[in-house]
């Protein structure tokens, strides 16, 4: 594991990580240890223990209500906004428990960005959408920053020359890539995606899938998907949650889809269960 206590989760500083990245390939970046999440009386996650590797695509699959989105949201504390939500156990980001009292959730979310199911650009210009995260940090965003994020989201060639037009004028697939550009502009380490292609047509979805593979060269991607073929196509590792918020199997994606160890997982991915 990496640095732990010294990570700037409690400040707004963003470190230059290029050298760290090259040194940390294949290391664990996120680790759940006995993670329990309750919504009131309901137990949504049950003692989840898992290590998510850095700069890989980790897919989370499972039937509706199995806890996969809850797990995703617990990584960057999006569950904090739900009043009845109670978290027990540890969720470590580079060795530091993100639920420690001294962690600033806003700073955490700059390091662990998120893309949602439906494209949700702000009703602002393309440029303003991309620079939003940096401006929130009180930083000025240069044209280079905007171009870098839009190139990173495979959108630059389609919007170059019209950065001041509204983000809402883009197609659904372009809007989702704009949201990805917005998520990566503050240079996060992890990008969480909650069914990012489910609202898109197959061609737009395919572009996002290609983009996810590209993103994993720079970022750790954790993606919730209902589409098992998508998980099989794009991820390196797959977590399977089944009912009751239990992580039933977590292995490299080829193993999950070729020869899963757990019969319930086999039944789920072959459509006999769920």
């Amino acid at each position: 594991m990496a640095t732990g206590e010294n990570e700037p989760l409690i400040s707004t500083a963003v470190t230059s990580r290029e050298t760290e990245r090259s040194a940390r390939a294949d290391e664990t970046i996120l680790e759940a240890r006995g993670l329990d999440v309750h919504y009131g009386e309901d137990r949504a996650l049950r003692e989840v223990t898992a290590e998510i590797p850095e700069r890989k695509v980790t897919a989370i699959i499972g039937p509706s209500g199995c806890g996969k989105s809850t797990f995703l949201r617990s990584i960057n504390r999006m569950n904090d906004q739900i009043e009845v939500c109670r978290v027990e156990g540890d969720l470590l980001f580079r060795g530091k428990n993100v639920y420690d009292d001294d962690v600033d959730p806003v700073a955490l979310r700059r390091k662990i960005g998120q893309v949602f199911q439906k494209p949700n650009p702000f009703p602002k210009s393309i440029r303003d959408n991309v620079t939003y995260g940096l401006r929130v940090q009180g930083k000025s965003a240069t044209d280079d920053d905007v171009e870098r994020a839009l190139r990173g989201a495979a959108l630059w060639s389609e919007v170059e020359g019209k950065l001041d037009s509204s983000g809402l004028d883009l197609s659904g697939g372009q809007q989702q890539r704009l949201c990805i550009a917005r998520a990566i502009a503050p240079d996060p380490e992890v990008v969480l995606m909650d069914e990012p292609t489910s609202a898109l047509d197959p061609v737009a979805a395919s572009k996002i899938e290609d983009l996810i593979a590209e993103l994993a060269r720079e970022y750790t991607v954790v993606i919730v998907t209902h589409n098992m073929q998508q998980a099989a196509r794009i991820s390196d590792e797959t977590m399977v949650f089944l009912t009751g918020g239990e992580l039933v199997e977590f292995d490299d994606t080829a193993t999950i889809f070729e020869n899963p160890a757990n019969q319930a997982v086999e039944d789920y991915i072959t459509g006999k269960f769920g």
Partner: peptide, 9 residues
């Protein structure tokens, strides 16, 4: 059908 797991095998 994109078979997986035992069915794919």
């Amino acid at each position: 059908q994109q078979p997986v797991a035992g069915e794919m095998r």
